[in-house]
Amino acid sequence: MFTGTTPLFQQLATRLADDIVSGTYPEESAVPSATDLAVFFDLNPATASKGVNLLVEQGALYKKRGIGIFVAPGARELLLAQRRDRLRADFVEPLVREARLLGLRPAEIERLVRDTLAKEPS
């Protein structure tokens, strides 16, 4: 299910965050327990707890004692803000690096982005 060399608990946290952002888990709704997540993704229970706790620490999830784990109010906005902060490092910088490697000039890179924007329905 999860691959690569990023620690598994981070991969699980990223996946949960994706689902919160996409609206699969609306704010104030319950997310699966760490045990269920561990069973579902073949993960060590401690690893799954660690992944969930990462989002709890960031304030995207909160625990109701004895009931479960819920998506915090404002979690979506919080996670979106985090992603906006990372947009440059995660996507723009690799794009520019790759374009330079291919010998594209700055103007050509700009045109590429504009063209893509024009084609994508907003």
């Binding site: 689902d19 699969t24 319950a30 327990s33 045990t35 269920d36 579902f40 004895g66 009931i67 479960g68």
Partner: peptide, 12 residues
């Protein structure tokens, strides 16, 4: 992830 239903077991 969406495949998962309501969690039956909520204790973490």
């Amino acid at each position: 992830m969406t495949v998962l239903g309501t969690p039956a077991q909520t204790r973490t």
